[in-house]
Design a protein around this nucleic acid. Sequence first.
RNA 1: GGACAGUUAGCUCAGUGGUAGAGCAUCGCCUUCACACGGCGGGGGUCACAGGUUCAAGCCCUGUACUGUCCACCA
Length: 930
Amino acid sequence: MDKTFDPSSIEARWGEAWEKNGYYTPETVAQLRGVDRAELAPYSIMIPPPNVTGTLHMGHAFQHSVMDALTRYHRMRGCDTLWLPGTDHAGIATQMVVERQLAAQGIKRTDLGREAFVEKVWEWKEYSGGTITHQIRRMGNSVDWTRERFTMDPALNTAVTEEFVKLHEQGLIYRGKRLVNWDPVLLTAISDLEVESKEENGKLWHFRYPLADGSGQLVVATTRPETMLGDTAVAVHPEDERYRHLIGKTVKLPLCEREIPVIGDDYVDREFGTGVVKITPAHDFNDYAMGQRHQLPLINVFTPTAHINDEAPAAYRGLDRYDARKRVVEDLEKLGLVEKIDDHKLMVPRGDRTGVVVEPFLTDQWFVDMKGLAERALKAVKDGQMRFVPENWVNTYDQWLNNIQDWCISRNLWWGHQVPAWHDEAGNYYVGRDEAEARSKNGLSAEITLTRDSDTFDTWFSSALWPFSTLGWPDANAADLKRWYPSSVLVTGFDIIFFWVARMAMMGLHFMGDVPFREVYITGLVRDSEGNKMSKSKGNVLDPLDLVDGISLEDLVKKRTTGLMQPQMAAKIEAATRRQFPAGIEAVGVDALRFTFLALASTGRDIRFDAARASGYRNFCNKIWNAARFVLMNTEDKDCGQDETLPFTLSAADRWIVSRLQKLETEAAAHFAGYRFDLLAQALYQFIWNEYCDWYLELSKPALQNGDEAAQRGTRRTLVRVLETSLRLLHPLMPFVTEEIWHRIAPLAGKSGPTLMLQPYPVANPQKIDEAAESDIEWLKAFILGVRQIRGEMDIPPGKPLPLLLQNASADDRQRIARMNDSIQFLARVEAPRLLESGDSAPQSATALLGQMSLLVPMAGLIDKEAELARLDKQLAKLESDMAKTEARVGNENFGKAPPHVQQQVRDLLNKQRHDREALQAQQARIREL
RNA sequence: GGACAGUUAGCUCAGUGGUAGAGCAUCGCCUUCACACGGCGGGGGUCACAGGUUCAAGCCCUGUACUGUCCACCA
């Protein structure tokens, strides 16, 4: 084995072998294990299908690390395990990517026509999808490629059609003219969720509307002057003393010369503005609702591109909405109808894809009636059929479902599932699985010309089916569907709880009669090391594979500054990148990156990604690698207990590490069950580095040299078996390095197999827990630490053997010293310790305390008197401050109320502190005397 | 206007009633025969603030401040 672990040399090899040999595929796994799948517990995860808009980012890599850990863990535990991969067509987002590319060549979507354009998008989908699957493979994610799905596969299109037709038959889908959020650039309706409202600086214009009878005027306040062209009423609060006598009168709408009524509605806030609101039902959601209440006419004054249409006075026709605003204000000013203009902060709705201000716009769209669906989804969580981890996300889920609006599912786009509905020339719509069904269901003769609805569905209308459309639905008898629905867990981000989680819950319950997954593990967002969201426009994105393979500074800068939407940001991004990664990014390998994500994955909070952390875990891989080298050097070609007829004995150290291992195994199971990957990662790291490597390997060295044959065999056996088990424990988190090493170690532990992936996950054996051995080793560690502290603080070179005297040793101490003498001498680098009997006088020494016993290192020629006095002072100061706290506790007049065992514990502590203080003070006095 | 998080060592974070922890960074000693991507040792915290409950509070309760996120129709 090489001296240093090189991830790149093994990753490609194993990744390919795992997939080629079918270890990701449940059928093959069962066959290799010789078991009947029907008898296994099912475990399944459906990947949240990444959008085919580009490449996977850190957030994906993070979530995939979690899912793969869960998948590999359950597969090792013997479950019939499926992780199903796939991608999402992501209607709007993907269409925009391709449109932008075409625009760069001066081509418009409409130049190509629908068919040719969609062809282009498919080409892009192949490219992007290929990149994504390559990334998933590189990360060692054990997804079953034989079951890969894309949301626009023919089978999934069948599912979407079924969904639409069924819901329509059930009266849950309707078509209607409603006010929707309209993106005037994309020229499509979007759902409430796709609108992002942000506070922006604007103005509040106050206009005078004269009363028609000439008796005065009303002053209205508005943030959108141009919509006045579509006003159909003016509203006041019905109990507003200032205005209520005017209700029923009319005002003359300036510029339009229309008369509109003054109405009373308690929606109006008397405190805001003037207490008078202009009502434009066709261009504002609140006004629309009020219009419904008062049967007001709707006057739409905009075109789909948000220009003024022919409903408005001629002077404004054809103007863009912002030009129209200017003109309206100017014209009103000329007429002296502008009372005042105030600065005003308001919430501006923008499309989440285009960033353009969205218009409430009156169009015909398809809607899903959500009330009933939402109620069942709420109930499923309340009844515990579906559980959120961490639990507090239930609030988010509930809040949205409790205030749900009907869902506008049609999009005026080309890329997506086309609506299975046809209309005749009169504009009547007919729904069916195909045109023939639409005709037969509605008794339409062949003479009637039908045209298919050109709209497509909101992407989420198909994603909502993902947990079962991928498994064969609508065929209710599909084997996969029966096997793996509901899936075990959904791993996703909180940002799509509404978009996706809630909708899958609703559709799953509606069509399958059960929740789509038992648990929802919500991850945080991956942010950069400063806590900023990673985004291309901020120039702070990291490609997971650049951490895996490393990247030079120049390449990173280039990557971050090309293809920017705002090229003027390039200089700033470059500077920030050079500051943060002056030497580029060093390669850490897949295992280290995965482990980093898991170690940072604490309970659902965002994680700040720190490349230094990943380097730390790269070092951890190297540590494991070298531990394996050490073990191999000492065990290869020797019997390690495979031959069970040969005698072996186990030392305290052997029994200690085995005992610790059992506790680790128990912990690992609990952390997997609780989705505490951070604690899991920490426990594994801690055990392997701080217990196995730092102590057990060191303890094994003298044992391998000086022990008798049976003891040596026992140590070799333990070295190999604990390492082999550790590799299995670690495998779901770090698949590559563990697999590579396992094949070298396994035979020595009497194990064999084509892959570590299919070995059983270790389970604790309580009979191997050995508290006596654990306390022996705790004592030994404290002993060695005492000597090392003296050595370290006195700057004595580690190699120099020290003389050691032991004072006041108890019978137990003596016994342990005799038993573990070799270990003590080797690890503490001391000469054979000499026991002082009472009455023996000690030379001037540096001291460490261990229970009642004192460890004395004679100072002659080694240690400066003042240095040791200073060290004792420091220890005493610490001790005394601790003691003060303990005494305060015992001294509390109500200390007697504490449980007896706690009282005992505190008293013991105080006694120990008193003893230590006495011993240290005595020692100090002795040194001073000399 | 509601709701939910968070505030612990220089940094990133664990720690749901019993003597404040980890990794990274830092300082000192060491090219000790697995590993310098290493070993050993050290330093570093009024646990945001103010009250309260308790024998005992980083942890429970109340309030305040600050940070972040989500939801919401005030023109």
